[in-house]
Design a protein around this nucleic acid. Sequence first.
DNA 1: CAATACTCTACTGACTTTGTAGACTTTATC
DNA 2: GATAAAGTCTACAAAGTCAGTAGAGTATTG
Lengths: 140, 140
Amino acid sequence: MLTRKGKYGLKAMILLAKEHGHGPVLIGDLAEREAIPKKFLENILLALKHRGLVHSRKGPHGGYQLGRTPEKISVGEIVRALDGPLALVSCVSQTAYAPCEECVTEKDCAVRRVFQEVRDETARILDGTTLATAASMEAR
Amino acid sequence: MLTRKGKYGLKAMILLAKEHGHGPVLIGDLAEREAIPKKFLENILLALKHRGLVHSRKGPHGGYQLGRTPEKISVGEIVRALDGPLALVSCVSQTAYAPCEECVTEKDCAVRRVFQEVRDETARILDGTTLATAASMEAR
DNA sequence: CAATACTCTACTGACTTTGTAGACTTTATC
DNA sequence: GATAAAGTCTACAAAGTCAGTAGAGTATTG
């Protein structure tokens, strides 16, 4: 499941993509426009900031902006930053590989092979979709 | 994430597929061969039984067998039975659709569109892989 | 300096996951 | 029909995760 954290984060990032080039947006504005609890969104944006996906400015006229242009930020990056690896089993994760404890024969584990394919397709879609694409899907 | 329940269930089912036609297999044997806690596996097999994916026989010479031939049971069915819907967001689930509470404009929600595609690909792979295929991936 | 706005850590309640316990039912065999 | 084998079912518990809140701290503008 995509957690609320991930969903909220994606929605906020898409909104920031739409506002890209128009100066920083306040957490409060983001929270209100997307109906996200403000304090929760603070945590989310902070995590995104630590990954360099957003930049922030404090003080009056502060707020958040995308860390890169919308064309250069993928949905996959955001999901990984907030919800962790895309892989459904750790033994097929690219970003957080870990062998299954009990799995002796990883090489020919059918579960692994099938979920490797799922991961690859998921990554293809999510890493192939940028914020620019996502933003353009929505009516203004 | 695929839960342990799902992973254990898949492994047990693949083993049952390999043993298909050779009579019932004991829970204890399944548990030992796949290093699954026996009591936990009981619950898992029970859930699979309630979905008709396995048949059981009590008493001496009892045990579990597949409810259908390995060609007619998909990995997707097993995952759904044990871990629930494949969709990462409820608003794109085929088996358990539910609109996002906060989402006003479902029609042009970019998150939804992207995860719709992910769900469809995931379902294509998992529903398209049968236990027969999975079993044949593994060396005997 | 005062107000604005982001930063960071820690906490909490609810829920889910991963098991375990134990009493019960059915079936085969002697 | 007694006995042992084996699955059935409900309930419980510990640990972990999720969703959200609290509050003190820091940087910036004017």
